[in-house]
Design a protein around this nucleic acid. Structure first.
Lengths: 341, 341
DNA sequence: GATTTTTTGATTTACGTACATCAGAATTGG
DNA sequence: CCAATTCTGATGTACGTAAATCAAAAAATC
């Protein structure tokens, strides 16, 4: 049986009230007495029963998710997963709210964070825009003991407690190796379609991708990056144009969103040649394209896992508890035609 | 605020005691009264606060994990993860025990299950040996309302509530596509190293593998399966022998354990030729081999996820609650050199 | 209609913790 | 040594549920 407050009161030779004062850092305990209690806590290995404590306190965990107002299927999926988490709120004692901020707008993000610092939710999950001024506020909030996790996109060198997202450099490297190996001895050019080089995840994917291509598959030439702004129309235009003008393209890496346009361009322009294509994010469109061999592999991050992980981590941090690191690691999913969920 | 028992008592116009009788299916409630209460429960959307209930009941979840006594690194890892889960028991109110049974021995498994049916744990997780007599007991236990999940290896056509493991046919298919694509236009023979064809997971992996090879990469000839009994020594001998005698081998698929022996054989015999190798299970050895290019890809199932998922599912089933299906799906991890954890 | 049986209500205690109150003890300052 | 202050103990209530007891009411049986 795990020890209770009564046990530590008895062991320390003090009353329940004193134990309570120590546990909840209330004033009015002499230093020596506090030490006695803390010793007993350590020796008996007492850990507060969080469920009982939450029941007594009527505690809920007010959490805020800050998301960019981006209209792409990944963000829609992320939103949907947050709604699912909200549906589970009663059982998990969470109270989740989302705030939308303009995408790629550090100032907007900063002002939202400033405002939240007054409101005092017990945790913040944010899709970070990677800018120094954002890092500054985040670091300040962390020092003020706000649990903060970054979601999907991390904040370079900040003090955030946790990052619930994939390692995008590793993702880019993986894409490069898959593409290089799939292409084998063929030579040629490789087109890269990104959303915007202003986004950290895209920059990192590209960085990992070019690094491995250069190190291990130097026979391929990487064409200048096409920036599709995560928009299917623009992506379609850019890719169709590139394919028309350049017969030497043997591979495509799409590291952002807007894959609907990419797929359309591939179907129009690449019927005759065999192109190897790797894309990010599993959606209805990319799934269909994988099944009909338009795409060869899909790299994916599971938004549901990311949201659930963020919630678990924030709750744990709010209670000062440890997390299971392996459980909270967000994995890069690699989907081929054969292992689709 | 979510409704409590008091609210449904008031709404149904009955006393707390009656509500309690209905909720905990105690006798002594007239049919009409029970219906009134159940209507109120539905209309108010009442859901029992599991934490409070467990506190009141002093409930713990006695769980049993039945594992084969196999001496390979995957099973050691699985055991280690169960020990981790046992360390978390106090916080999770679980009470986990493991039972070892001889591997591939349906009779032993059946007798353990029979015994457990008397002991009445609140859930059973088992690495199933796929035999009709095992299925028969499992189905009987499920009908007697025992929560049962299969772990790592499933039980064909049984009524088990859940399978916490990967889809091994999909794993084999994925291995085939990776191997086929990595090999590209090269032709040649492919060696397959398995543990034993008596194990369902190995059979399924092979089935998936040969299916995709035949459909999509018919230019490769698959050599007769080498059965290494998951033993590094035997594996080493078999693979070394195959490589010596057959210069046409271009690829190797290792779908079982004993990869230490495989790796040794590859380093001895395949220095001169470029072999493409795909193996299962990420261990210290396979990881090192992936990093030094002896192995090209590793397929993996995360034992930690499997154990935690099994525990979550069993607890939920014991309480008659729903699980988050997407969360409990065990994914096939594909590791290249670049996305190792 | 009286009796037995079944159903229902009212009340209490408990789980482990939080939090508040008040009285009494120990300590400190003068 | 007394007063003021600081600490500590004792006690009670609460959270939402479980489980038990006993009395009272309702229904079923004869």
């Amino acid at each position: 049986m795990r020890p209770t407050v009564h046990d530590i009161a008895a062991a320390a030779g003090v009353s329940l009230a004193t134990v309570d004062r120590v546990l909840n850092q209330r004033p009015g305990v002499r230093h020596v007495t506090r030490e006695k209690v803390e010793t007993a806590i350590r020796e008996l290995g007492y850990v507060r029963d969080v469920a009982a404590a939450n029941l007594a306190k009527g505690r809920t965990y007010p959490l805020v998710f800050i998301l960019p107002a981006s209209d792409n299927s990944f963000m829609h999926g992320l939103n949907a997963e947050i709604r699912q988490a909200i549906l589970r709120s009663p059982a998990e004692r969470t109270d989740i709210r989302t705030i939308e901020v303009p995408a790629f707008d550090p100032a907007a993000l900063v002002s939202v964070l400033e405002e939240l610092s007054r409101e005092k939710p017990c945790g913040i999950a944010m899709v970070a825009t990677d800018a120094p001024e954002v890092r500054a506020v985040v670091d300040r909030l962390v020092r003020e003991r706000f649990p903060i996790v970054t979601l999907v996109s991390d904040l370079t060198g900040s003090l955030r407690h946790h990052y619930a997202g994939v390692d995008n450099i590793a993702a880019g490297r993986t894409a490069a190796r898959l593409l290089g190996r799939f292409l084998g001895p063929r030579k040629g050019e490789i087109a890269v379609l990104a959303g915007s080089m202003l986004v950290r995840d895209h920059r990192e994917r590209l960085e990992g991708f070019t690094a491995v291509m250069a190190e291990e598959f130097p026979d391929f030439a990487i064409l200048p990056v096409l920036e599709g702004r995560d928009d299917p129309e623009i992506a379609h235009m850019l890719v169709a144009d590139a394919l028309s003008r350049n017969a030497g393209i043997v591979g495509v890496y799409s590291l952002g969103a807007g894959n609907r346009g990419l797929i359309r361009a591939l179907k129009e322009k690449a019927v005759d040649r065999t192109l190897t294509v790797i894309a990010h994010e599993l959606t209805a469109h990319t799934r269909a394209a994988l099944l009909d061999h338009t795409i060869d592999a899909i790299l994916n991050q599971d938004a549901g896992h990311e949201v659930r992980s963020a919630v678990r981590v924030l709750k744990a941090k709010a209670d000062g508890l440890a997390v299971i690191a392996a459980q909270e690691r967000i994995r890069l999913d690699i989907f081929l035609k054969d292992n689709l969920p």
